[in-house]
Amino acid sequence: MSRKYFTKATDIAKRIVEERVKEGDIVIDATIGNGYDTVFLAKLVGKTGKVYGFDIQSKAIENTKAKLIESTLTERVILIKDSHENIDRYVKEKIDLVIFNLGYLPGGDHEITTKPNSTIKALKKSLDILKENGIIVLVIYHGHEMGKIEKNIIEQYVRELNQKKYTVIKFEFINQINNPPLIIAIEKNL
Rank of each mutant, 00 (worst) to 15 (best):
G147V: 08
L130W: 04
I95R: 08
K131I: 01
R89M: 02
T167G: 12
K94S: 14
Y52E: 04
R15I: 00
F100Y: 15
G24H: 11
Y141M: 02
Y166T: 04
N133Y: 14
T72R: 15
A13R: 11
L138N: 04
S126L: 02
K65D: 12
V139C: 07
I95L: 13
V77C: 01
T113E: 08
G143N: 01
G53P: 06
E150V: 04
L105E: 06
H110N: 14
K125T: 06
I78F: 03
L190M: 05
T64Q: 09
K50H: 13
V158P: 05
F6L: 10
L41V: 05
D82G: 01
Q156G: 10
D29M: 02
I174H: 04
K67F: 03
V21A: 04
Y104E: 06
V77R: 07
I26L: 08
E160G: 01
M1L: 06
A9C: 13
L41Y: 07
L97A: 02
E132Y: 02
I186P: 05
F173C: 09
I78K: 15
I56H: 00
P116Q: 10
Q176R: 14
G108R: 07
A185Q: 11
K59L: 12
N179Q: 05
Y5S: 10
D88P: 00
E19L: 09
N34Y: 11
K4Y: 10
N86R: 11
L97S: 02
K4R: 11
A42T: 07
I149R: 12
Y104H: 10
I140Q: 00
I186R: 09
L182E: 04
E85Q: 12
Y5M: 08
E160P: 00
Y36W: 05
L161D: 10
I69G: 00
I186N: 08
N189G: 00
T64Y: 08
K14V: 02
E19I: 05
I120T: 02
G53E: 06
V39Q: 13
E160V: 00
K188V: 04
I112N: 08
V98A: 00
K8S: 13
Y166N: 05
V51I: 09
G107E: 09
K65I: 09
L79H: 07
N175R: 14
N101G: 06
V51L: 08
R159P: 00
I184K: 10
R159M: 10
S71Q: 12
G134L: 09
V158T: 14
P180G: 05
K50I: 03
I153M: 12
G103M: 08
E18F: 06
E150T: 11
L123T: 00
T114V: 03
I61K: 09
K124F: 02
Y157F: 15
I95G: 03
K81P: 01
I153Q: 11
E172G: 10
I129Y: 05
H84A: 00
L68G: 07
T72V: 03
L190H: 15
L123F: 06
I16Q: 06
I184M: 02
V27D: 12
I174C: 02
